[in-house]
Nucleic acid binder design. Sequence first.
DNA 1: CGGGATCCTACTCGATACTG
DNA 2: CAGTATCGAGTAGGATCCCG
Lengths: 131, 131
Amino acid sequence: MSQSAEDVRSAYEDSCHARGDVGPIVRDVLDRVADKWSLLVIATLQQGRLRFSQLQAHIPGVSQRMLTRTLRHLERDGLISRTVHAEVPPRVEYELTPMGGTLLAPAIALAEWAIAHHEQIEERRAAYDAR
Amino acid sequence: MSQSAEDVRSAYEDSCHARGDVGPIVRDVLDRVADKWSLLVIATLQQGRLRFSQLQAHIPGVSQRMLTRTLRHLERDGLISRTVHAEVPPRVEYELTPMGGTLLAPAIALAEWAIAHHEQIEERRAAYDAR
DNA sequence: CGGGATCCTACTCGATACTG
DNA sequence: CAGTATCGAGTAGGATCCCG
């Protein structure tokens, strides 16, 4: 870890063939990963396969609509898998795909940064707003 | 790296005193870090102190308004510093603060994940949409 | 139980025009 | 040069109702 600016630039040029801009790519993925609920869903699915209602219970504040939308988006991107069991009442289970699993490390790193610094950030905000 | 779910939970409990939810905290920081331009600004400032116009030139597509807003937000949170030189024409320089620098490692990790997987993600999207 | 369909509000972003 | 002010379009997200 602790990559340099050059590392990022070279990774960018590798994947973009030395043309265009890395910005859109990073933002595209980031928009999926960093929206209001995705990261929370992914972190929760770290526990293993879970049902829709279990996810909803583990993620306070998420509406049914947003949980559904988030799960669909993550499924579309291949980060989670959706399994419908032909039973009554219906049972639908979600779990991380292998690719979804590879997102955990960077996602957790960012989450830990957030947890470690949010206090300092709030202090800075208060100081800034006090002017 | 490659932390476990328990590591995240314990980090959460440490900072939240075993109450509340880590979600809002992570989301609060993430909303700042993962908005449309912040990460790009931070990555660009990795090069060192830059002027407003230099930032705008290095970040294709950013409007003057959004760059200003992004810089203000990052400054408020203590991630970058803003220096106004009393000259004419005015010269304003931005640079990462020490705390801003600590964000680089996790941010780059996520950016590299995005670059490494965006191709696979687009394949999955195409496959999903083809149904 | 899981989730589709609607409606509605608030906010975000971009374009444009103006300023010290 | 480095902003601020204003406006309009688009969208994210919540509430609600309904269905297999």
